[in-house]
Computed example of a mutant assay.
Amino acid sequence: MAEIKRAYQPNKRTTSTPRNVVPKQAKQPLTSLFTKDNYKWMALGAIVVAIGMFLMSGGRNENPNQFDPKLVYGTMRITVAPIIILLGLVIEIYAIFRKPKQEAVEEKTV
């Protein structure tokens, strides 16, 4: 039994700090993924999509017992509203992929 205790020597790596611990000086401040401009563009895109949805909802039929194809299949519901919704989605994609200006990034890191 004494021979086994002498043969076992702990690994020096186990006594040091773990590898996944980052030293304090290496930590960087957290920066936001988006800037104010990105959020403004996102809000604009959401508003445009909401307007397109509102236009797609259309009008109200005065007589609920009678079907009026002019209200259901109108140009505003079938053509204009989907184009406006797609425009809003394009604005959203632009807002997500838009890179911040270099001055805005430098101001946040200082």
Rank of each mutant, 00 (worst) to 15 (best):
L33A: 05
F34T: 04
A81T: 01
I84L: 05
P64G: 03
V48I: 15
S57L: 12
E62C: 13
L86C: 14
K70F: 14
A81R: 01
G58E: 04
V49G: 08
S32I: 06
K70Q: 12
Y73I: 03
R60K: 14
F34C: 00
G52S: 09
L33N: 06
S57K: 13
D37P: 08
N65G: 11
G88K: 02
L89R: 02
L86I: 08
N38K: 02
L71E: 03
F67C: 10
D37H: 14
I78W: 06
L89A: 05
N38R: 09
A50Y: 08
L71Y: 09
N63F: 09
A50P: 06
D37I: 10
T79V: 12
I47G: 11
I83T: 08
G45K: 01
P69N: 05
G74T: 06
A46S: 14
I84Q: 04
A81C: 01
P69S: 00
Q66V: 15
M76N: 14
N65A: 13
K70M: 13
N61D: 10
N63W: 05
N65K: 10
K40S: 08
K36F: 14
G74L: 00
F67G: 06
P69K: 04
M76A: 10
G59W: 05
D68M: 04
W41M: 09
G45D: 08
T79A: 08
N38A: 07
N65P: 07
M56T: 01
M53A: 15
G59I: 04
Q66L: 15
L55H: 02
G52D: 10
I47A: 13
V49E: 04
T75R: 09
A50C: 11
S32N: 14
G58N: 11
